[in-house]
Design a protein around this nucleic acid. Structure first.
Lengths: 304, 304
DNA sequence: CCACGGATGAAACTTACTTTCAGCGGCCCT
DNA sequence: AGGGCCGCTGAAAGTAAGTTTCATCCGTGG
C-alpha cells in the first residue's frame, strides 16, 4: 500500500511555507505573485481552485502549475493538500477555541469541559501506567481458574463492581455482585479455596468491603482489591492489590475520575480473562448481543 | 436539509474523523466502506484521488461523493483538504497506530493494558473535544430550572443513568432513575412542561429509551439524549442531543470506552449544574460525604 | 535588424469530479 | 404471495479542474 512515493518532495525542513518564501526571489514575476498569495494565507489558498488562484494572482493556470513545480510539488492538488496540512498545524486548537469566540452562552462550560476531560483522561492514562501487569496476570489466573467470583463494592464503587460482574457473566464466568453488606457477608462465608473475592473501594477505608474480604479470606478464597490508596486498610486483607491513580482534586465531581480509572482496570482484567479463551468468550459475547437485538430499532440509518 | 439542525451541519466541533466515525452506522454499506478507509488512514485518503479511493473501497466514484455529502462536505476536494488538515494535527500517529487497533490474539497483559488505556483515554478526550458547550448549556439550564428530572438508560447505559441520578440527587436536584421500562413509562406520563427527561443509549436504537422519551416529550417535558450516534432514531425524540465519541473496537464490546465517554459527559453536566449554585451544592456535597463517614476506617492515608 | 531564449497565456487536451438515470433488491402494504 | 414503492448503487454522460502544448511577446546580444 505504501508505494507511490514518486513524491520526492517530502522534507521541507522548516515547513512548506518557509520553503516557499525562501525561494521566492528565484521565481519569475508571475510565479512570485502566486507565491505571495500562498504565503500570505495558506489556508485560504488551499481552499481555492487553480483557476481561482490564477485569477487572484492575475496570471494563468499554467503559471500556477509552473509555480507548483518550482517549489517541488507534483502538481496543484498536492500543493493544496500540503498547504491545508501546513495551515492546520500552525493553529493552536486550544487557544483558538477560547479566543475564537462565538460561544458566549457556554464559555464557562467550555472551560469546565476541558478541565474535566483532562483530569479524566489523565486518570485513565496514569492508572494504566502504574498498573502492574504481573499482578494483573495473577488476578486473571485466579479468575480464570475460579469456581465462583464474588464482587463487592459500596456506593460509587458499587457501579464498578456491578459492571465487572456483568462483564464476567457475559463471557460465561460465574460471578456475583452484592449491593449490600449482609448478603455479601453471607455469600463470602460460602466461598472456599479456588474461589475469588474482589473488593472495590476507592478510599480503601470502606469498612463494609474490608469486612467482606476478611470473611472471604478466612474461608480460603483468593482476595483481590481495587483501590486508589495502596496503604489503606483494605490492602491488608487482600492477596492481590490493584491500584488506580486518580488524584481527585476537590470535593467536586462525584469522584468520576476515580470511577473511570476503576473501570479501566476492570476492563483490562476482563479482556485479560476473555483473551484466555477466545473462541468461547466470543461465542458468549455474540449470544448475549443477539439477546438484546430485538430491543433495537431497525438500523439507525436515516439520511437528512 | 429540511431537518432542524441538531446535527451541526457544516461545522464539526472537534475532529472530522471523530465526526465521521460517529456517523458511520448511519451510512449505507458502500459508504461505510469508504468511511472505514478514511478513518483508518486520513492522510493516505487525502492523498488519493476520488477514483483511486472509490476503487480501494470497491465502489463507484458516485458513492464517494455521496459519502462526502453525508458527512457534511461540499464535495471530494473539500473532504480531501479537511482530511489533510486533520491528519496534520495529530502529530503522534506512530504510537497511536501501533496501539490503536484491536487486541491481537497473542497479546500479553502489558500490551492489553496499553491498548485499552489508549482507547479509553482517547474516547474521553475526543468526546470532550466534540462536545458542544452551547448544547450543554441548554441542558444545564433545563436541569437547573426543572421541577423534576427523570433519567433512563438500559443495560450498560443504565449504570451511567444511575450515576447521573445519584450525582444530581447529591446536590439537591430532584432526580429519578428507572431501571425498567414500565415504571419509566409510568413516570414519564406524569412529567410536564418544565420537567426534564434524559435518555442514555449508546447505540441510539434502544427502543425502550426511545419510547420513554417520546412519552415524556408528548407530555411537554424537555428531552435530552446522550448517544454515540448523532443520527440514530433516538435523536428524533430529543430536544437536545449530546454525543459521545467512542469508537468501540470490535472484539471486546464490553463497551467500556463508551461508558467512560458517557460518564465524562455526565460529569460535565453535573459540574455545570453544580456551578450554578456553588454554595448550596457544596453544602449538599459535604453533608452527603459526612453521612458515609461513619463507614470509614481510620488509618487510610489520603493524598489531596 | 535579426536571431535567440525565457516568460507568459490561450487553447487543446487529459484527468478528476459531479450529476443523471436506470436497474436492482428489499420492504411494506395489500 | 404479488405488486408497488423506496432507497442504494454503479454506468455513463456531463462538467469542471488541472495539465500540456504551442504561439506570441519581449528583451537581449550579435
Amino acid at each position: 500500500m505504501a508505494k507511490s512515493s514518486k513524491i520526492s518532495a517530502g522534507r521541507e525542513p522548516g515547513g512548506l511555507i518557509v520553503h516557499i518564501s525562501g525561494l521566492l526571489p528565484s521565481l519569475s514575476p508571475a510565479e512570485q505573485r502566486v507565491a505571495r498569495l500562498v504565503v500570505a494565507d495558506p489556508a485560504e489558498a488551499a481552499r481555492r481552485t487553480i483557476t481561482d488562484l490564477a485569477t487572484a494572482a492575475e496570471t494563468s493556470e499554467a503559471t500556477v502549475i509552473r509555480f507548483c513545480r518550482s517549489v517541488g510539488m507534483d502538481g496543484y492538488p498536492q500543493l493544496r493538500i500540503r498547504l491545508a496540512a501546513e495551515a492546520a498545524r500552525r493553529v493552536e486548537p486550544l487557544d483558538a477555541r477560547v479566543v475564537g469566540g462565538d460561544i458566549p452562552p457556554g464559555a464557562d462550560l467550555a472551560q469546565i469541559i476541558a478541565t474535566i476531560a483532562f483530569n479524566d483522561a489523565r486518570a485513565v492514562e496514569e492508572t494504566a501506567e502504574q498498573l502492574d501487569p504481573v499482578v494483573c496476570g495473577h488476578v486473571v489466573d485466579a479468575i480464570v481458574g475460579a469456581g465462583r467470583i464474588d464482587i463487592y463494592g459500596a456506593g460509587a464503587s458499587g457501579f464498578v463492581a456491578s459492571d465487572f460482574q456483568q462483564k464476567l457473566h457475559r463471557i460465561g464466568r460465574t460471578a456475583f455482585y452484592f449491593p449490600d453488606v449482609h448478603t455479601a457477608l453471607t455469600s463470602a462465608a460460602l466461598l472456599g479455596r479456588g474461589d475469588v473475592a474482589v473488593g472495590i473501594s476507592h478510599t480503601g477505608t470502606t469498612s463494609d468491603v474490608v469486612e467482606v474480604l476478611e470473611q472471604a479470606r478466612t474461608r480460603g478464597a483468593t482476595t483481590v482489591v481495587l483501590t486508589n490508596f495502596p496503604r489503606s486498610p483494605v490492602t491488608e486483607v487482600a492477596d492481590h492489590v490493584l491500584t488506580t491513580a486518580a488524584r481527585e482534586t476537590t470535593y467536586r465531581s462525584g469522584a468520576t475520575a476515580s470511577r473511570l480509572a476503576q473501570l479501566t482496570v476492570v476492563d483490562c482484567l476482563f479482556v485479560g480473562v476473555a483473551a484466555r479463551n477466545r473462541p468461547r468468550a466470543r461465542k458468549a459475547l455474540e449470544a448475549t448481543a443477539e439477546a438484546v437485538r430485538s430491543h433495537r430499532l431497525g438500523s439507525g440509518r436515516r439520511r437528512a
